[in-house]
């Protein structure tokens, strides 16, 4: 990265990402793993929705990422629109050992495309890949499906911390690309009015300066 450009000429983006999917596929665990670096095998099921924020730098852009984790239970499905409205990206999570949860992803794709159009960045995430033995949904099938609906397919394990960081970075990267390509005609995001006092964690590679001495 250009040392003079870092920090001063970075674009700033505020992105809202929503986690959707069947109950108990690991949405909350993915979010907690990514934001807090934790994994709790006995996580209490999410009631309604919860929210966490993270700042990062991807492709030379400062990103304020707000991640919305929703309750997966069918009962709460009707509340979905409340949370995905205004999202720039959606992570549709399923459990690779549970075929039913993959069906649910298909349903979410339809609903999101209908509600948010082509503007939303869709990622389909197969979680729990650490449980390889009881796997029922193969990578092949899932990635083909993802391709057919214009989504990106990723595999993760929140428990073993496989691919989680990568997933969110890819997602941000895709959202940055999309935002730069077409100046967004979306309204302000759900948290548009908040003050910019949040602590920023810059993940910027320092340009190496120590070469001269040896």
């Amino acid at each position: 990265m250009d040392p003079s450009g870092a920090g001063t000429s970075n674009d700033e983006f505020k992105f809202k990402v929503v986690l959707l999917g069947e109950g108990a596929v690991g949405k909350s665990s993915l979010m907690l793993r990514y934001v807090q670096g934790q994994f709790n095998p006995r996580h209490i099921s999410t009631i309604q929705a919860s929210f966490l924020a993270k700042q990062l730098v991807v492709d030379g852009a400062d990103i304020d990422l707000s991640i919305w984790d929703t309750a997966g239970q069918e009962k709460y499905h009707a509340l979905g629109p409340i949370y995905y409205r205004g999202s720039h990206g959606a992570l549709l999570v399923y459990d690779v050992t549970d075929a039913k949860s993959f069906d649910k992803v298909k349903m979410w794709v339809k609903e999101l495309r209908r509600a948010l159009g082509e503007d939303v960045v869709l990622f389909i995430v197969g979680n729990k890949v650490d449980l390889a033995d009881s796997r029922t949904i193969e990578t092949e099938m899932a990635s083909q499906f993802a391709e057919s609906v214009g989504a990106t397919y990723e595999e993760t394990s929140a428990k073993e911390n496989i691919g989680v960081e990568n997933l969110f970075e890819l997602m941000c990267s895709a959202m940055v690309t999309r935002a730069r390509a077409g100046p967004s005609n979306r309204g302000p995001s759900a948290n548009g009015g908040r003050a910019g006092t949040t602590r920023r964690i810059r993940i910027v590679d320092e340009p190496s300066t120590g070469r001269k001495c040896c």
């Binding site: 009631i47 309604q48 929210f51 409340i82 948290n191 548009g192 009015g193 908040r194 003050a195």
Partner: peptide, 17 residues
């Protein structure tokens, strides 16, 4: 209202449980 905190963000959980 200004910072867009809607009641449902906290109220739903309080009511449900």
């Amino acid at each position: 209202d200004e910072i867009d905190v809607r009641p449902d963000l906290y109220l739903i959980e309080w009511v449900y449980t």
